[in-house]
Amino acid sequence: MYFEYFVEGGDFTNAGYASSQIKKHLKELGVDPSVIKRSVIALYEAEVNIVAHAYRGKIKIFINKNGVKMLLEDEGPGIADVGLAMKKGFSTASEAVREMGFGAGMGLPNINENSDSFNIDTVVGKGTTLEIIINF
């Protein structure tokens, strides 16, 4: 089953739409609550990352009997040092973003902790694609 969502950079009021939709669908499928929780947290973090850092992005979600695969492709500045971005507490978020309660530097590490497989493909100046897999 395939779902697709579009995300606009800077649109914080709508950040979380994809994750709340996916949460609803996973519940309807009767997926284990702890798996749903991990999926929603990982997706929400990734969604907010696009809003906070990129210009726009597309979220592609694939669900089958084995699990959920999420691809988040954005057009944006890319990540210069992935190793550093994966460190807890590191953030390049602006002051304005932090004031809204985002940008604590927990995004990528949190996605990593909640997923069974996590890949980052990034090109500086072009954009970033995250691949998150969570098994049922």
Binding site: K27, G30, F136
Partner: peptide, 12 residues
């Protein structure tokens, strides 16, 4: 609140 089926393949 199983909506469709206990078997996830059928449910999907």
């Amino acid at each position: 609140l199983v909506k469709y089926d206990k078997d996830i393949e059928v449910a999907i």
